[in-house]
Amino acid sequence: MKRVEVRLSITAVAPLLDLIKSVADELRVHLAVPLVLSDADTELAAVWREDLLASQRDDCDRLFSLFDQEFFMEGVVAFDRDNAEPVLRACAALRLRFRETHLAKIPDDTLEALEASSSLGDLDEIVQKAFACFLFLDELQKIILKYLDPMAVEEDE
């Protein structure tokens, strides 16, 4: 994958970063996807949990490294073969965490309809912001997936 520079709207994205960061902080100690192992595997689960948390932390750190001085001056973030996959994983983890926390009260079909229309509906202000983060992380995923496999994202649409 060659280096890809993407221009984002600073005014749209910058206000979301604090909330995304606070959810990323939760992911330092909570797995985005709970382990589903049998009771006989508690030792394995304990070892995995630590390794998975470390990986999750690294991925979120890579995501936040996109929002550096260049982003705040030019609105540009850059993906390459080193950061594309960690950022993809971080977006996935953060979206799952947003769903579990800030967006937990929204039924699946309502969330799906809001996602399809990219509208904020009549959500409370804090939920609106969380939903905007949820959509933004999805957009980042789409951009990266498009560059990894141009056909892939079209099939989602």
Binding site: L88, A92, R95, L96, R99, D138, Q141, K142, L145, L148, D149, A152, V153, E155, D156
Partner: peptide, 9 residues
């Protein structure tokens, strides 16, 4: 939650 194209990839 997870995007289908992500799961496939």
């Amino acid at each position: 939650v997870t995007r289908m194209s992500y799961a496939v990839m």
